[in-house]
């Protein structure tokens, strides 16, 4: 599958295919969406188990759920303040959706839905729209003063306002492309080096020895990818929190 002839095919891993037979085909439900459902199910299972146990002294699973809760709750409190409390479930959902997307992608045969720009862009647009709606709800027309910082000379307005608007709009792009590019790059590298292992391994007697090098690289890459999986989920969540801060406090 990965090696067709002598070319390296690192991209076919990102192809979508319908699951659930004819029903999935009819409603364009791909394996990517199936993994989203798995991610939601895992998140739900984790948090529900945490709540159901409800032990005073938590076990391992409950401690995991509570530390996830505490981590994001602390992040939202630090970034947004007490007004951010009602947006916490949203930030938590964003974090868990990205985190489980990245982590599930590390399982063999699994599909990494965060490696699709459509997915990351959709998520970024959801965040951007939510932040903008919250800002307009809280500040009404005053929200538009966000694009012109207080105290700036008025004659600079023709420069500052377009720049601010572009930077506000580019949040969607930077948020989505960062995650997408990280996941694609990681998975392409894993695939390329894995293909090297197969190609070099077939070179007769010396093959296994030469193939050990890309294998070692892949072992390191897997560890690195786990780091990236957490880091990108963290980055996505903290940027969402920072944007929420801007929406709530306007600068």
């Amino acid at each position: 599958m990965a090696v067709e002839g002598k070319t390296i095919d690192a991209l076919s891993q990102f192809e979508l295919s319908p699951v659930l037979g004819i029903f999935g085909d009819a409603v364009s439900f791909s394996q990517s969406n199936l993994f989203m459902v798995i991610a939601v199910a895992l998140t739900w299972y984790l948090m529900k188990t945490t709540a159901d146990r409800g032990a005073l002294v938590p076990g391992r699973l409950q401690a995991l759920g509570e530390s996830a809760y505490g981590f994001i709750a602390g992040m939202v409190r630090d970034q947004v303040g007490d007004e951010g409390k009602k947006y916490f479930p949203f930030v938590f959902s964003v974090f868990m959706f990205v985190l489980f997307g990245n982590l599930l992608g590390m399982l063999p045969y699994a599909f990494t839905y965060t490696s699709h720009i459509v997915v990351t862009l959709t998520l970024a647009i959801v965040v951007w729209v939510a932040v903008t709606v919250i800002a307009i709800q809280r500040h009404g027309m005053h929200f538009f003063s966000y694009f012109f910082p207080e105290g700036a000379p008025v004659w600079l307005a023709p420069i500052i306002i377009p720049v601010e608007i572009i930077s506000y709009l580019s949040r969607m792009v930077s948020l989505s492309v960062r995650l997408f590019a990280n996941m694609v790059a990681g998975h392409v590298m894993l695939k390329v080096f894995a293909t090297f292992v197969v190609l070099l391994g077939g070179l007769g007697a010396v093959g296994p020895f030469v193939a050990a090098m890309p294998l070692a690289v892949n072992v390191a890459l897997v560890g690195f990818e786990f780091l990236v999986a957490f880091l990108q989920a963290y980055v996505f969540a903290i940027l969402t929190s920072i944007y929420l801060h801007d929406a709530v406090h306007l600068h």
Partner: peptide
């Protein structure tokens, strides 16, 4: 499938 993926994601 890409469009379907987005809708299902939402």
């Amino acid at each position: 499938l890409l469009v379907g993926q987005m809708v299902w994601q939402l």
